[in-house]
Design a protein around this nucleic acid. Sequence first.
DNA 1: CTGAAAGCGCTTACAG
DNA 2: CTGAAAGCGCTTACAG
Lengths: 335, 335
Amino acid sequence: MTRKSPPKRITIHDVASDAGVSFSAVSKVLRDAYGVSDALRARVNESIAKLGYTPNTAARGMRGKTHVIGVIFPDMRNPYFADVLSGISAALERTTYQMVQGIVQHSTEAALVQSMMNMQLDGLIIVGSISTSEELSGVAARLPLVVDGHHLPNATSFDTVNNDDAESGRIAVRHLVEQGYRKIAMLSLETHNGSVIERREAGYEEAMRAAGLGRHIEIARAPQSLRDIQVVTQSLIEKRVEAIFCWTDYVALEAMSVAGSLGLSIPRDVAIVGHDNTMYCGFEQNSLTSLDQSGEQSGLQAARLLIERIEGRQKAEHFLIHPRLVARRSSAAPA
Amino acid sequence: MTRKSPPKRITIHDVASDAGVSFSAVSKVLRDAYGVSDALRARVNESIAKLGYTPNTAARGMRGKTHVIGVIFPDMRNPYFADVLSGISAALERTTYQMVQGIVQHSTEAALVQSMMNMQLDGLIIVGSISTSEELSGVAARLPLVVDGHHLPNATSFDTVNNDDAESGRIAVRHLVEQGYRKIAMLSLETHNGSVIERREAGYEEAMRAAGLGRHIEIARAPQSLRDIQVVTQSLIEKRVEAIFCWTDYVALEAMSVAGSLGLSIPRDVAIVGHDNTMYCGFEQNSLTSLDQSGEQSGLQAARLLIERIEGRQKAEHFLIHPRLVARRSSAAPA
DNA sequence: CTGAAAGCGCTTACAG
DNA sequence: CTGAAAGCGCTTACAG
């Protein structure tokens, strides 16, 4: 085993001997525990600074808290998640908690959760979970959990943060109807119970019926791949729909691309509305109308709830965000 | 302290007693160590499966390897990083290594590195590092390190994976010159020594001179914010440049947006070339010419190198990727 | 207010 | 081939 000899790690013992105190005194200072005099604390902190000591997270994890939380994202491609992360990060800034991310790629959400539990993290935020209520309850039984973007009928063992996704669907439809569109389709995703997408679909259908457009309800579901989105968009266009509400922005941008490739002009030939109001919406070449659910706010609240839960709160809390339409050229009234 | 009592964790001892062996025998099976009979191994594996045992990463970290590596990204907004992650993930799939990500937000790269060292991770991949050679050498002295996207004059204690960024700059310029453009500017980023951006600038300048266009060299550097990019793009357009080579795609998309807002048409009034060939380039409304440095390949190689290094390789290796131009409408020859 | 002891769940020599 | 012992760096009662 040829290993480079790593510079010896500085431990609590080194700090103790430098400060001339017992090593348990150092531990107490670190954890802000009771029963340390100001003099002792000052001396220890000085040594910590001098030696550049940082606690070994693995060792901490064996006994108490690691002061690290985990955040799980379903993918890194959807720019909405960057907004959520930004909110979480801001909320954590003034706390002693650090964060690591797990992004579902070839592995599964469950594997990532397991891996983070094995690392003894203090709590977990799962964004856009694809797990069932039962699975999430199982996780919540083992560590503090907040789920962001998943509507669960009866989550009592963990907190949730959600956009009012049914309202998103309603707002999108009402807006398009006001602009003069009637044959409004929805471009959705093959999904599962309790997902944000399911709620958006429900809101879409409800508003269509309320507007007397029930006969025009048309929900097309495509997997996440660009190729599939293309095919499904084409078929909607062939059906001569007048407007398409897409479950997330990048799908809307792809739909826009397909329409353009077919020589159609937006919104004249087909109007498009996205969801999340990510940074690409504002680009002139897209000018995509979108529903803003403030990912930043969502992340901020999720982090707040998680910390409260780590510090002892037992009762579940559920935070709801109200979406807001940002109208742009892609849904302008037909001339 | 009212804490929910978490279901007791299954440890190596539980497995041992279930299998009727000593707990050290279990440890050996887990680590594939020498000196375990097939019969014992089979019995232990059966118990592991039955009990659903997974090793406690924190405990492992106290003595040996955690089998977890860390990947640090400078941000989550640039879609190029999703490609890199995908490559790393693919490379890890057939190994026993898990991965967590750290994304630089409000914290710093150095803080994230420290945090991951404290977690006793087995190795680190830093993508798009902003640290100096010295800082990175300091990290490499403590754990196996691969740096992706950072040209360091004399990295001997860690591996690197790089795109040939000077070549990217040259290819961009040559392509634009072939298409008939002469006043070619570069939209860059305020940056540091050894960065990929610096190299792209160097390649740009070199190719401009080689084409006899030295007098048209114009490098505008903007911070990462959309607002700043707007201002800088406007000033380039006011100088009546004929083409703009942007250091990364989303900057190019923003430049495109600014041009559009000013009523200019692309490429007739100004041609645009991006870098990374991320998924947005192919959208009809963008149709952005871009240099493909294959983020997936980059991630794949980085993970391979890191694992080799974790398993004992001492000599530094440096992998170079050759960029490839993907031409689209944004740089078509002026009619 | 301060310190000595036990123990978290593993790995790593070492002894049988 | 198998197992008992020591120890990684902390936290948590507990004793002084």
